[in-house]
């Protein structure tokens, strides 16, 4: 093939700083199509910063990001982003249905009316997330798990090729957690690429195919069974791993 399919996400020598203090330093990362990647690392390691920089919400100091082979965020329209729950304005006057329909705007255009097909599609996305009975609820009147699922339904409605999710498992109930895991695997099986910020070491191994261990620098990136080792986790979490190391080693040994 003369024209290979471009890599969904290629990050080269990325450096990001907040007020001259580096948050991310020299990140090199290539994510192949169909990967289900978990980004793990301690608090303040720059996990959210990494995907926000890919979204162009934070300026980079150095290096480049290629999205489907394009620099300059040209292909950003192929990304579906699920924000951290606490960054959403839950008092905003929109219903669950409204939020999911926003995901269709990329397909309907910014000015044309939402047609019946988009509405049906959005309903199907809500249905898949078990939210159809709550379609007309204002988003602030939903439980934490439901709120998270609204944004995943919107991601589904976007039909993106690359998904970036910021802590989708944060503060959700067990049923929601199961639904999300099933969704992630389903999207991966459809050939989508997913990068998910995750903070729970005890589940990281079973949820993700690849892991990116991050602490300002990229400590390791690779298949979960190769990267999820005591030594690498120790290097990622540094001194903070006194309690975590027990969890980590127990998980490593038991799998």
């Amino acid at each position: 093939m003369t024209n290979p399919i471009p890599i969904p996400l290629e990050i080269h020598d990325l450096t990001v700083a907040y007020e001259h203090k580096p948050v991310l330093y020299g990140i090199d990362l290539k994510v192949e199509q169909g990967s289900l990647v978990g980004i793990i690392g301690p608090n303040g390691a720059g996990k959210s910063t990494l995907i926000k920089t890919v979204m162009g919400m934070i300026k980079q100091e150095d290096g480049y990001i290629k999205i489907f082979g394009n620099k300059n965020h040209k292909a950003i329209t192929r990304i579906g982003y699920v924000p951290q729950r606490e960054s959403v304005d839950w008092d905003f006057p929109v219903t669950a249905m409204d939020v999911v329909l926003m995901g269709r705007f990329g397909h309907t255009g910014w000015f044309r009316r939402i047609n019946k097909r988009d509405r049906t599609f959005a309903s199907a996305c809500l249905e898949q997330m078990n939210l159809l009975p709550y379609a007309d609820r204002q988003i602030g009147n939903l439980s934490g798990g439901q709120q998270q699922r609204v944004f995943l339904a919107r991601a589904l409605a976007q039909q993106s090729d690359l998904y970036l999710m910021d802590e989708p498992f944060e503060g959700v109930d067990a049923v929601t957690e199961k639904t999300i895991v099933a969704l992630l695997k389903q999207l991966r099986d459809q050939g989508k690429t997913l990068m998910v910020v995750h903070h729970d070491l005890s589940t990281a191994k079973e949820y993700f195919d690849q892991l990116a261990l991050l602490n300002m620098r990229l400590v390791a990136y690779g298949n979960t069974n190769e990267v999820f080792t005591n030594e690498l986790l120790q290097r990622t979490y540094g001194g903070k791993l006194t309690v975590l190391s027990e969890v980590g080693s127990r998980k490593v040994n038991s799998h």
Partner: peptide, 22 residues
């Protein structure tokens, strides 16, 4: 009326607005 969706999405979720190319 005309800019309703642009105003809605950019107000509610800046990251979505960006990923829709707004």
């Amino acid at each position: 009326f005309v800019l309703y969706r642009l105003l809605l999405v950019t107000s509610f979720d800046l990251s979505l607005a960006k990923s829709l190319g707004m």
